[in-house]
């Protein structure tokens, strides 16, 4: 590996590795191998939006004691379903998760960089970043992608985690310029987000249990898939269901496929009776 070699051709670690200074992996990467940084790439003029698959709807909601994030499994390229079992919700570190909407390839790369960034800081400093610190780092990575976003390759993640200092689940949304906004209770991003948000508005309560909260986000994803062609609904023949992450004071946990399937089956059972989903009280 070229970066690991000294300039004089010996195998000694280069000075930049041994120089104290930054605890940020992306800063280090910028100094050693800038070509690996997504932000340093230049593209020819024109739009590239139709070239790559897009990932769609992500929802997140808090409950007393934690936060839940879920994503559907579809990636689209124009009218084509590029992948029907893509995963769009990833653990960022032990107490947070990031879900991605937008250009799938760039988003997955950004997630990898973000995961490495958090772990790198933790190892070098011996302590984890604060929840706001993590959210700000993600902001900086998105901002680096602005040039590509203007050519149609936008990445819009949703970030959620358990804040050990505040003892609660927190959700952050972003815009393509890296703007960071803290959301209360719930949020959704991606092409089906307006439908998912409508469902969340009607179904969300402050005193949800963990299981109920997972049911709410799965209901919301069902509604998103119902009205948005780019969001994948539960695939009953292939048994493909949303990826669900639950983050509590015990850390990040991805719900097992069988647990998610069980909840999804209940949701679908209800929809068999009433396709538009559960009634909300009028007042």
């Amino acid at each position: 590996m070229s970066q690991a070699r000294g300039s004089s051709g010996d195998a000694r670690l280069p000075d930049v590795f041994l120089t104290p200074g930054t605890s940020s992996f992306s800063d280090f990467l910028g100094a050693v191998s800038p070509e690996l940084l997504p932000a340093r790439r230049t593209l020819p003029q024109g739009t590239a939006a139709e070239l790559a698959p897009h990932a769609t709807t992500i929802v997140a909601a808090t409950f007393p004691g934690g936060v839940v994030m879920a994503g559907d499994r579809r990636a689209t390229m124009g009218n084509i379903i590029a992948q029907r079992d893509i995963e769009k919700v990833f653990p960022a570190d032990e107490y947070s998760a990031v879900g991605i909407a937008g250009t799938a390839g760039l988003a997955v790369e950004m997630v990898r960089l973000f995961q490495t960034e958090l772990e790198h800081y933790e190892k070098i400093e011996g302590s984890t970043l604060s929840m706001d610190g993590k959210a700000n780092r993600l902001s900086a990575l998105i901002r680096g992608n602005l040039g590509l976003a203007m050519q149609g390759l936008a990445v819009v993640p949703l970030f959620a985690g358990y804040d050990l200092t505040a003892d609660q689940g927190r959700i952050f949304s972003y815009d393509v310029t890296g703007g960071r906004y803290e959301e209360t209770a719930f949020h959704s991003v991606g092409s089906g987000s307006m439908f998912a948000k409508g469902a969340l508005k009607k179904l969300y309560r402050e005193d949800l249990s963990e299981l109920d909260c997972v049911t709410v986000v799965i209901q919301a994803l069902y509604d998103a898939a119902d009205d948005d062609s780019a969001t994948g609904g539960p695939d009953l023949t292939r048994r493909i269901f949303p990826v669900v992450s639950v983050i509590t004071a015990d850390g990040h946990r991805r719900m097992t496929e069988s647990d998610v399937a069980e909840i999804a089956d209940r949701v679908i059972g209800g929809r068999m009776q009433r396709p538009d989903g559960p009634h909300a009280a009028l007042n």
Binding site: F17, L18, L29, L36
Partner: peptide, 18 residues
């Protein structure tokens, strides 16, 4: 040894990322 440790973390994370 702290310098060596940090260099090791950097090398490992760089390799794992690339």
């Amino acid at each position: 040894f702290e310098n060596l440790r940090i260099a090791g973390v950097r090398l490992a994370d760089l390799r794992g990322y690339s």
